[in-house]
Design a protein around this nucleic acid. Sequence first.
DNA 1: GTAATGATGAACT
DNA 2: GTTCATCATTACG
Length: 195
Amino acid sequence: MPGSADLSVLERPVLEAAPLLLGAVLRHDGVAVRITEVEAYAGEADPASHAGRGMTPRSAVMFGPAGHLYVYLAYGANFCANVVTGPEGEASAVLLRAGEVIEGLELAQARRGTSVKRELARGPGRLCSALGIRLRDNRTDLRVGPVTLELGVPVDPALVSTGPRVGVSKAADVPWRFWLTGDPTVSAYRSGAKG
DNA sequence: GTAATGATGAACT
DNA sequence: GTTCATCATTACG
């Protein structure tokens, strides 16, 4: 049955689900992006996660079923999109950090104000900007839309690199960032360490 | 009610 | 390499 999105694979533990999102296609409002970089946020036990201090109105969606979208506003100006993973009750999610625009190129260029293709979705805020994802898209069921996710054939693990997460000041040592090795759309690393 | 804090991006030296 | 705009969310009174 084509078109009937099966996201049940995302119910597995977040560190297994995260690399499966590499190569997946996220669509919204005329633009499609192939995901090239993600980060795992592993539930209430992860101090860097928004769910790390228990359930709040904002983090509640992370406690829900897999395959939903979690959108938040970072630093007052940039939206970031996550895919909720794991079984219901486990507050894990995968941050979509970067991707390559594969459809709706002109629309994405207009939204981003640049024509440099590899910069269109290079970074979580830019990715949301290119796709037109906003706070109102929080909690979207990715099987239904308006934001949708299509999982393809899992990429070869040999093509995937791992490393520490970007911009986090806690649990900065765990290699829970996954990206396609050598892909030009992968964002730059920035340490979250304070001093 | 007030204040501190960022899972960033853009601009600048 | 560094600085800073900007506001939803959270913690606290």
